[in-house]
Structure formats: C-alpha cells, structure tokens
Amino acid sequence: MSFKALIVDKDDEGKTSAGVQTIDESRLPEGDVTVAVEYSTVNYKDGLCLGSGGGLVKTYPHVPGIDFAGTVEASDDPRYTPGDKVVLTGWRVGEIWWGGYAQKARVKADWLVPLPDGLTTRDAMAVGTAGFTAMLAVMALEDHGLKPGDGPVLVTGAAGGVGSVATAILAHLGHEVAAVTGRPETADYLTGLGASRIVAREEINETVKRPLEAETWAGCVDAVGGAMLARVLGQMKYGASVAAVGLAGGAGLPATVVPFLLRGVNLLGIDSVMRPHDDRLRAWGRIARDLPMDKLADMIQPATLADLPELGRAILKGGVRGRVVVDVNA
C-alpha cells in the first residue's frame, strides 16, 4: 500500500530539500483515523516547513501541510466511519506531526471535524486555516458587539489568505469593508470580494505621536500587527474591537494603553491551532452558511504536490494572493 507524499528531509549539514516520493503506508504515524487526502492548501507556516522548518519541524524526514480535507479510509474511533468526509486544520499537524501534503494521512480523531453540508473537500481547502481563522475573527468581533451598520470595518493584509476570506465574509454579512493593501494591483480583486474602499498601506502603516486619532473604524481584522496595529488602535470607535490574527508586519506593538483606557477598545487574540472542538464546529457551520462560495473562485490558485516547494518560497516573500488549493492526487 504505497502513496505519493511531499517529503522534506535535512542532510548532515542542516540543509533541507523537498520532493515528491512514493512511500509505504507503514511509514504513517500512529493515530485513530486514516484519511485518503483529496486536497490541501498553502499557508505561511507551510512555507516555513517546506524550507528551513522555521523551528516548527522537530524531526526529519517530514510531510508538511497544516490543512487537509478528504475521506475517512479507516477508523478506530466510533465517531468516524469509512466514507465520512472530514477536514483538519491546526493541532500542529504538518509541523510536529505528518500533515496533508500526501495522498494519505493518519491523525487523532479529536483533531478532525466532519465536513459541513454544502461544502466539498475542495471548498474546505479553499477556506483552510486562513478562512477558518478569518471566521473566528469575525465571530469574535460579533461576540463583542459588532453589527452591520455600525460603521466601516477595516481588514489589514486584505489580499492575503485570511484577509481575502474576512473581506468576503464581512461584506456578505452587510458590513462596509475597508481593505488595506500594499499591492495596488489587487484593488479590483478586493472590490470583487466586496470591499467598498481600498486603503493604501502607506496611509496607515506608521505610528504617530498622537495616541488617539479620529474615531473611524467600527471593527478590524488585523493580519499585520506591528506599527500598523498600533496605529489602528488609535483610530477605533469607542468600544470597538480589533481581532489580531497575524504578524506580517512584525511581532512588536509600539502602542500605548490610551485607546484601551479612554475609548474602551478591545484587542482580541485569535488562535486557530488549539481551538476547542465545539468552536471548530461552530466556525465551520458559519463558513458553510456565511462565506459566499462564488467568491472563493476569485481567490483560488490550483496546484499539485510538485508545485509546493516553489509555492512555499513564494508565500514567505508575500508572493501568493488569496488561496492555493493543492490537489494531492493530480
């Protein structure tokens, strides 16, 4: 029982290499459920794991791929039976556990989520960790009071995976979306996703001396962090919230506490990796209901296992727009 997998290995000098190999099923890790993988995707973490590892990969040889969707082939857990469609994101799969860049994967049953009605496995990977994170961010903003009509909602890093899906969801829910991008050529793409305003990155990516500016944004999904997040905090409306999902602009936060103390602004941290199972079910149900699937077509770049090393390098340089859907059987 052999299958194809994208294997990353490291030599004695610490240099990594990645390539498609045919391997035996006996090499899969232990787990409750074996899945015939149909699709995976490419995230920033995957780019790290396809290259130097970024400190995420502990042992080699390794199969990256932090997301996958497919069909249960065998299960020792009563919650899943052969033929069930499932999706997996997070739980450090693809990092310290073999992941989805293969035609088969074996994982713990607790890590899987049944594929919601109305979604295909390809749809699920057009969503992936990026879209799942985006929905968690939208849900957090809603849980803290955000409603359509409250005012414009800012999405930073809007042309990336998380930002693209967040823009589409928010617009579908009736929000006015202001999309921040440093790539002017993505303006039509973002408008097509539902953005009503394009904000040039240079307008908002530097801190100012004033800790508070005019109250502008009713909410924000921030994928950038750093100086841009610090600036945005001072522009939020009274009681508004920022859902922080990434650090493309840096891990530092050169901000003051003034927006929190004088405007009651909330900074909400969004983690998708270790999210409890009930939250996952809720988020995937909302994705099936509130993410316009016709918008996904504008985000998708198809790929195969052989394309992954180059795509991994590209995403680390900010060269991937929207979502990559990897057909592991192509």
Rank of each mutant, 00 (worst) to 15 (best):
P211K: 14
S40R: 03
G194A: 10
C220M: 05
P292S: 10
L190D: 07
S75C: 10
K209A: 15
G192C: 13
D67T: 00
V86Y: 09
E95W: 07
P276I: 09
E25P: 07
R27F: 02
M293P: 00
K104V: 04
V93Y: 13
G51P: 05
G51A: 11
I270D: 03
P276E: 15
S52R: 11
P211G: 13
V328E: 00
G128C: 15
L141S: 00
L261T: 14
E73R: 12
P254V: 03
A297H: 01
V153M: 02
K104D: 05
I270N: 05
S52T: 08
L56G: 03
N205G: 03
D46A: 01
Y39L: 04
E13D: 05
A168D: 10
G65F: 04
I7R: 03
G160R: 02
G234T: 13
G100D: 09
A297M: 00
G51S: 08
W91P: 00
V107S: 07
E30W: 08
R286K: 11
T41F: 10
G65E: 09
P82V: 06
L305F: 07
V153E: 07
G47M: 02
W111H: 08
L281E: 05
L190H: 13
L28T: 07
L141Q: 00
R286E: 09
D294Y: 02
K58T: 15
V326W: 01
L56Y: 13
G249Y: 11
D9T: 10
T81K: 12
V320M: 05
L146T: 03
G54A: 08
P309F: 12
V35L: 02
A306M: 01
I23D: 05
S241M: 13
N205I: 10
A306R: 02
V155M: 15
A248G: 15
A248P: 08
P78M: 00
E206N: 14
R210E: 12
D123Y: 12
S196T: 09
V86W: 05
L291T: 10
V273I: 11
A214Y: 10
A243I: 12
G31K: 00
D67M: 01
A200N: 08
A178D: 12
D143Y: 10
S75Q: 13
G131C: 14
T256I: 05
Y44H: 14
R106P: 08
L190S: 15
S196W: 01
L193D: 12
G239Q: 06
V199K: 07
V93E: 09
A240Y: 06
E25S: 14
L262P: 01
S2Y: 00
R27V: 13
R92G: 14
K209N: 15
A240V: 03
P82M: 02
N266I: 00
A140I: 06
A69F: 15
G322F: 01
A159M: 06
D24W: 04
G322K: 01
S272G: 12
A297Q: 04
L296S: 11
G182K: 06
